[in-house]
Amino acid sequence: MNVAWWCSSTPGQIWTWRYTPFIGVWVMAATFIGGYVLAHRRDGRAVDPKLLRRWVLGVLALFLVSEWPIGQLGVGYLATVGIARYIVYTFVAAPLLLAGLPDWLVTRWFPDGSRRRQVLATVTSWPIALLVFNAVLFGTHLPITVDTLKVTQLGSFGVDVLHLGAALIWWWPAMQKVPAENVIEEPLRAFYLFASSVLMFVPAAFLTFSPLPLYGLYELAPPLWLGFDPTADQQAAGIVMNVGGGFVLWAIIATLFLRWAAAKEAEDTAARRLRNEATLARMAALDPETAGAAGTAGAPETSGAAGTAGADPDRQPTSD
């Protein structure tokens, strides 16, 4: 049993608003950005400013939630901030980092035919990625995991690495990175993202509706203010997970889906137009007069007649 019999300044860390830089976090951020630029230089390629911007924003998101004060508050004091960190790692940092990663760099780190590439291809296939992501989500939010791992610096760092790693794996097929065989398209992509958002409601519900604090780590942490209630903090954490993991993700899904629907519609319109043009050309070859009349009405967007005809090429008037 691990308890304290003497109240002194040593057992816990008293929270103060005095800035305490975490050198390790600064070094990590510098390594991420420096490594990115270095990889381009070594390969003799110019850095794409658009990709670099996304990469830097991803690193910035990681940095902000790992540095003081958010990092310290989330790791040791407030469940709400702890869950908010998870949300940022998963829904902000990971997709930005992936969006900033050029395909050639992925190919360089995971060369075709190598064992690493095989591992990448396996873990980023969507069923495995979905499984890994949710296993990490559930596993790392169990009270026993939090109260065992997050009370040590190494354990806490390990949990952060797991969160980021699982998020990268999860986003990989949805962000349509290489290997091409793992890329998923709508409507499977929407289902894939939606399935995770629904599963995320489970731990969120436990946090929101539990009448007692689930995590001793936050329950027994020095309070930031007198009258602080760890149960209310936990309920707020559940709401953050619901909003971040549910509604924000749904907004992303809706945006992706609508974009896909718009692209599909444009594709269909273009295909219809091609079919119409082919039909008109056929007609022109058979009867130049009819083709001329239809050709006037042939601009699909400006003519109701052409619109009707365009909707079903089989109903085009024949020259007979």
Binding site: N2, V3, A4, T10, P11, G12, Q13, W15, F22, I23, G24, V25, V27, S66, W68, G71, Q72, G74, V75, G76, Y77, D147, T148, K150, V151, T152, Q153, S156, F157, Y215, G216, L217, E219, L220, A221, P222
Partner: peptide
């Protein structure tokens, strides 16, 4: 040199 837990006990 990163953030650490505030509780010194296993909690």
């Amino acid at each position: 040199c990163g953030p650490a837990s505030a509780t010194a006990i296993a909690a």
